[in-house]
Amino acid sequence: MSDIDQAKEAVRDRVWRLLEREGAVPEGSYGKIPGFYGNEATAERLAELDVWKRASTVKANPDWAQLPIRTRALQDGKLLYMAVPRMASLKPFYLLDPALLSLLPEEAAEKKGAEQIARRVGVDGMRPVDVVICGSVAVNRSGARIGKGAGYSDLEVALLIEAGLVTEETTIVAPVHQLQVIDEEIPETEHDFSVDLIVTPNEVIQCERRQHPNGIVWEDLTAEKVEAIPVLGKLARAQLPRNLI
């Protein structure tokens, strides 16, 4: 584990313990994207913003913490892309069209509901994304963030950037509990992305510094990680020199 990885893990540990100690999350939240109490209020606060009202397409993680926002997206008539857990498909996103739902929005927005009714799509079947909702363990007011360490959010965003679907016009949002907003520096690497907005049950924080990768940072991925994610394996093989195929 690198020094940066160790520093990130120390931040995660402190925030997870703080959330549990303060009763801000259900028992057993350590090690996960925190499904914090008050996540419904973050959805309501986000829905009041012009950036949300203007958006027609939203991409979100499948974590429970973001369920109220995914539900609100469908209720507000927005096309919702929801990441397939662990990107375990050549088409790593669920497409939920509010005009075609056979379940209530709150059911369709759940992982089980999406798996049941949503069509899986790859980047070639997606529209440009207006708002990205990313699960986070910790964020600071400059926009640096840390997930739970698996790296899927980074890869999802990098894949969409490389496909031209996440651009400078896209707003990246971290909905979190107030205790997840920390004052200290968060170490970052080339593949990390920052967020533009932090939304808590209590406030909206506009982050001025923007850091996005140009796409997938292949040097940061192990061969095992690439082969475990079908779409990355396909892209990697497509990039091999023809005489090596």
Rank of each mutant, 00 (worst) to 15 (best):
G122F: 09
L197T: 05
S153K: 04
D63N: 12
D50A: 09
E9W: 03
R141N: 05
Q180H: 05
T200P: 12
I186P: 07
E48V: 01
E190K: 12
G164F: 08
T42M: 08
Q180D: 02
P230K: 10
T189W: 03
L244C: 11
Q75F: 04
L103S: 02
P85G: 02
V129E: 14
E219H: 12
M82D: 00
E44N: 03
C207Y: 04
V121T: 13
E27K: 04
G147F: 13
V204N: 09
V129D: 14
Q239P: 06
D220I: 03
V173T: 03
H191F: 13
A228D: 13
E106T: 02
G149E: 13
P92F: 11
P92C: 11
A60W: 08
T171W: 09
E184Q: 15
E9D: 14
L179E: 14
P92E: 00
S2Q: 05
A118G: 08
K112Q: 13
Q6A: 15
V123Y: 05
D220F: 03
P187D: 12
L165I: 00
S2G: 10
Y94N: 02
E22S: 10
A118C: 10
A228F: 01
A109P: 12
I229Q: 02
L197C: 05
A144E: 15
V181S: 10
M126A: 08
A144S: 14
E185L: 12
A41N: 08
T167N: 13
V231D: 00
E203M: 01
L179Y: 12
R45M: 12
A88C: 01
N243F: 15
E227F: 12
A118H: 07
E208H: 11
H191N: 13
L19M: 13
A109H: 11
I33Q: 09
E115A: 15
E184D: 15
D130L: 14
I161Y: 10
D13F: 01
I198L: 04
Q239A: 15
L96R: 05
E185V: 07
V217M: 09
Q178Y: 01
K111H: 12
L100F: 06
E224S: 13
I229Y: 10
L240G: 06
Q75W: 02
Y30D: 00
G233Q: 07
V231T: 13
R45E: 03
L80G: 11
G149A: 11
I146G: 04
R86P: 00
M126G: 07
L90C: 00
R54D: 13
A99D: 14
L235C: 05
S2C: 09
R209A: 11
I205F: 08
R210A: 03
E115W: 09
A24T: 04
A223Q: 15
A108N: 06
I198W: 05
A41K: 15
V176P: 14
Y152I: 02
S89K: 01
A223C: 02
I69E: 14
D192Q: 11
R145N: 08
S102K: 11
T189F: 00
E106K: 02
L197E: 08
K59A: 15
K78T: 00
Y152N: 03
R86N: 11
R141L: 06
N214L: 14
P128D: 10
V199Y: 10
P201N: 06
G233N: 11
